[in-house]
Design a protein around this nucleic acid. Structure first.
Lengths: 342, 342
DNA sequence: CTGTTAGCGCCTTCAG
DNA sequence: CTGAAGGCGCTAACAG
């Protein structure tokens, strides 16, 4: 299975190799006649260019890397499908990889992106800067970080970070919960070690819920396992749960069902991340949306402009600020009305 | 941002370029001393090989392509995460693409795989052989087709197809439904034009349900839109629905809820595809599982052995049969007990 | 308007 | 045990 090369095409068309190249790339002046002959030869032989060879000369691969924590998480897979679709129309193909929420997984994939000489990357990294991530940043490749901040990342001012501002969503959620007569809310933070953003959500919760409902009614658990945290808060008479990490909410739904606790009646819940499941459960789950669509759009747009700049040889040493997309509370059925005050 | 090349390493270590190459590839005889020096230079300069250059010489890219109909569908994203993980340990990186359930999208991605000179591919193609797919098959690349059969694909005997055998799951489902006292079942087939497998499911349903419940109690709709089909069957007094295509089932869940029809009480449903949502809805949905885990495993294993053979220059002209993985009925809460026979 | 020359980064002979 | 030469597929500069 030997591929047809530009040389075969040249031979078939009876011209020289560079002529074919010029026809294919619309560079140089080529007579309509030769052009025709070359194009026909291309068609006849079904010539398909070798991107490795092209990239060796052009030092541009037209590929971008995408790193997510977990491909099978629908929050990320949706983001991926958005991003790849938009980049495709700009002529880029994507290399997608998962860190499996581990630093080793992340570094392994980042390295393989480097060996592929990608033109740029969109990363949803782990919350702590790994060796691999530092090297990646140091390489100076066009790069945007999505969805998560990273602790201890030097040189961070140079790279755009697009994430969600938890405040508006949390505020709206708490007010809605309060309006329905709930007064004792617990927050389940998820694996905060993985991401400063999760920590921030918790702090913001404490801040806002504390000021609205009184500090003793805004509860938080030290437990790392979601299940233990839920059990603890339940024993402390919490009847409304807010989840900073959607997989925890899914676990909770299973758990409450098992315990015979009716969501929206015995217990109310609100989760971060607007993923499709939450609309299909019965009752449907109220969520704090991070507006992933917007996030993906911004990310792609930033990356293209960075890659553009690079392609033009511009000095893109602008300091990119952080872009924060406001979260949005989407009210559904998982927060019940309370008549009896506890 | 110029990458470190093997030449820089050679210079740094005070040896020639081929020497570095030999050290890195463990070929040829190199003295321990030089080897040491080279390795140190590699580390000091943080040399990262250029896979494009390597693949130009070796004509192997260590890349495999994965085509799915829709990345954001959790059935596929789960399969992707399985496959990429397993291939990674064998040293392959994956290029993932979506056909967006269209022939054009499929062909565009397949072509880009060809320009990338991938070593092999795992495809979940559209049900009809597109020009691009035919060309791809004709290229002779190691290739396995997953989850779906393809109509009119010449040379199909040469490539392995791994899909699910719908019979066992459907049979078990219907028996369970019958045992619960339901006697009038309708089947929603999904976009059968897209896949012979969907058609097969319907035929098998007609066959099995017909023989178990009588032909007039095994209903099918001609409507292409799931919603119209549901409405029609509802008007024909169907109270139990089987969905051949999970997105339709999700639509149905929304619809029934809107209509105030209680699943598991007023209406019973069973869907193909064991995806996480179905376990989280209330009531949880009984499914016919295609055992995706198995499917992914087999697929990867077949592909590696094909690529192996190719790497060794073997003639892998074996006729690969189709491997069919039995479907499995998973009984949950969406099929209610019927006391009153309609 | 077209062909010649040279080189991208790497590896595989083959001399030394 | 190591270095020199050549070539993978392609394109940018220059001749002609």
């Amino acid at each position: 299975m030997n591929y047809v090369t530009i040389k075969d095409v040249a031979h078939e068309a009876g011209v020289s190799v560079p002529t074919v190249s010029q026809v294919l790339n619309d560079t140089g002046r080529i007579s309509a006649a030769t052009r025709q002959r070359v194009l026909e030869a291309v068609r006849r032989l079904d010539y398909i260019p070798n991107s490795a060879a092209i990239s060796m000369r052009s030092s541009s691969t037209k590929t971008v890397g995408i790193l997510v924590p977990d491909i099978s998480n629908s929050y990320f897979s949706y983001l991926i499908s958005l991003i790849t679709r938009e980049l495709l129309v700009e002529g880029y193909v994507c290399m997608i990889g998962s860190s499996s929420e581990s630093l080793e997984g992340q570094d392994r994939f980042l390295r393989s992106l480097l060996t592929q000489r990608i033109d740029g990357a969109i990363l949803i990294p782990q919350g702590t800067a790994s060796r691999g991530l530092k090297k990646f940043v140091a390489s100076g490749l066009p790069l945007v970080i999505l969805d998560r901040q990273v602790r201890d990342l030097p040189d961070a001012g140079r790279i755009p970070v697009i994430d969600a501002d938890p405040r508006p969503g949390i505020k709206a959620a708490i007010e809605s919960v309060k309006a329905r007569g709930h007064s004792r809310i617990g927050f389940i933070h998820g694996p905060t070690a993985k991401s400063p953003n999760l920590l921030e959500r918790e702090q913001m919760f404490v801040d806002i819920a504390g000021s609205r409902l009184g500090n003793r009614n805004a509860l938080v658990s030290e437990h790392v396992s979601a299940l233990s945290a839920i059990r603890e808060l339940l024993s402390r008479k919490v009847d409304t749960f807010m989840f900073g990490y959607s997989p925890d909410a899914l676990e909770a739904i299973r758990y409450f069902r098992l315990q015979g606790l009716k969501i929206g009646v015995d217990v109310s819940i609100i989760s971060f991340d607007d993923i499709p499941v939450f609309e299909l459960t019965a009752p449907s789950i109220s969520v704090i949306s991070q507006q992933q669509g917007m996030m993906g759009d911004y990310g792609v747009r930033m990356l293209s402009s960075l890659m553009q700049g690079r392609a033009l040889g511009e000095q893109t040493e602008d300091a990119f600020g952080r872009i924060r997309i406001p979260t949005l509370f989407i009210d559904r059925e998982s927060v019940g009305e309370t008549c009896t005050v506890a």
